[in-house]
């Protein structure tokens, strides 16, 4: 279906994904634009993942992790904060709106915070024009991992 906004949400298993389950079980309506990708910790998410999602179909990416100081692996969410900031600078430098990439934090016990984050992201992306992309030049997944990973240390 063309014209539908697409937002990929990388959600930490310990908090955001659990909060999503809880709010869904209460049948809280959410904008359909946001699709969840489960990660064990937002520390797992690198610039590679965010940039590839934006390059290959997403109008926005969000990373939803634990409250700062409450990471189950000590400071994985701080790493994620840094990487999101890095990606935002990178986007800005190539003329893409940095707000297409955002970090949110919450605890597993805060479904309303998850819902608010998703709605906020949808609202922000809805206000932006669709992200221009050239599907034919997108490399096949898996072959350029190392090349794009290089951006992580740029």
């Amino acid at each position: 279906m063309s014209g539908e906004r697409r937002i990929v949400a990388f959600c930490c298993r310990e908090c955001a994904y659990a909060a999503a389950d809880t709010s869904a079980n209460a049948r809280t309506a959410l904008p359909p634009s946001v699709r969840l990708v489960l990660v064990p910790c937002t520390g797992r998410v690198g610039p590679l993942h965010l940039l590839r999602a934006l390059a290959d179909g997403a109008d926005g990416v969000m990373v939803a992790g634990c409250l700062l100081g409450q990471c189950h692996y000590r400071e994985g969410n701080f790493n994620a904060v840094d990487r999101v900031a890095f990606v935002r600078r990178l986007l800005e430098s190539v003329g893409v709106e940095p707000e297409r990439c955002r970090m949110f934090t919450m605890s597993a016990g805060e479904p309303p915070r998850f819902v608010a984050a998703v709605r906020e992201m949808d609202r922000v992306i809805a206000a932006l024009p669709p992200l221009p992309r050239s599907g034919d030049t997108a490399p096949a997944a898996g072959t350029t991992d190392a090349a794009v990973a290089g951006m992580g240390v740029a």
Partner: peptide
């Protein structure tokens, strides 16, 4: 199994079982 090392790895040598770069990117894209 947090995968922080894999996200930090500059060459893609380090991967997390079940959450490799290829798996995550394939799902996200």
């Amino acid at each position: 199994g947090c995968g922080i090392c894999a996200a930090e790895c500059p060459t893609g040598a380090m991967q997390l079982g079940g959450f490799s770069d290829a798996e995550l990117i394939a799902e996200a894209t």
